[in-house]
């Protein structure tokens, strides 16, 4: 199963915020398997989408080259009912704080402008860890990661706070 829970970024500002969309489609297997005859996208997968949106934003701070892992959802609420086929979920992630050991983000999900979900997520940066087991490790194969970032448009819409474009060649995906 492919584990891509956002389709495309529409905005990605380095170190600041990002907006991504997820189109819910009846052709997705999980809709059939969650509640047969009543297709909805499980909120756990919405949470994963919010984490992917915030996680890539945080990972960029560390040049996509370090082991940054989802450590904790400090808060995760759903108030918008169910995500049904045809819905377009929009996730907006904002970086709250960055420290050497990690970063916290707030992600808000909406469907057609209506509040749907909200999460506070904390990501841990393992290179700040003294453990030799995790030091220097990365989460993804760099080639796979680059492919993913291209597909979701990070280098199409991504900019620095001064407005200059994020370019693949500024990162090390070797």
């Amino acid at each position: 199963m492919r584990w891509f829970w956002l389709d495309r970024f529409s905005e990605f500002v380095s170190g600041s915020h990002a907006t991504a969309v997820k189109c819910v489609s009846l052709s997705e297997d999980h809709l059939e398997e969650h509640w047969p005859s009543y297709p909805v996208m499980p909120n756990t997968l919405v949470a994963e989408g919010m984490a992917q949106c915030g996680g890539l934003l945080v990972s960029e701070i560390y040049k996509f080259g370090e082991l940054v892992v989802l450590a904790k959802f400090s808060k995760c609420t759903f108030e918008g009912g169910e995500a049904r086929p045809g819905d377009v979920l929009q996730y907006r992630a904002t970086i709250d704080q960055v420290k050497d050991f990690g970063a916290s983000v707030t992600v808000k999900g909406t469907v057609e402008g209506r509040p749907f979900s909200e999460a506070e997520i904390f990501f841990a940066r393992y290179s700040a860890d003294s453990s030799q087991q995790t030091k220097g490790r990365t989460l993804f194969n760099p080639v796979d990661l680059l492919k993913w970032l291209r597909v979701v448009g990070v280098f199409t819409v991504g900019v620095r706070p001064d407005g200059t474009r994020l370019r693949e060649e500024d990162y090390n995906f070797a």
């Binding site: 904790k72 420290k99 050497d100 904390f122």
Partner: peptide, 28 residues
């Protein structure tokens, strides 16, 4: 253990202070 990092974030925000790694809990 991961909660301590979260607590550090919140205390920094609530009080406008800077807490360095290991200051609250000197794991080193």
């Amino acid at each position: 253990s991961i909660d301590f990092l979260d607590i550090v974030f919140r205390l920094e925000k609530a009080f406008g202070i800077k807490i360095e790694r290991g200051e609250l809990f000197p794991e080193d």
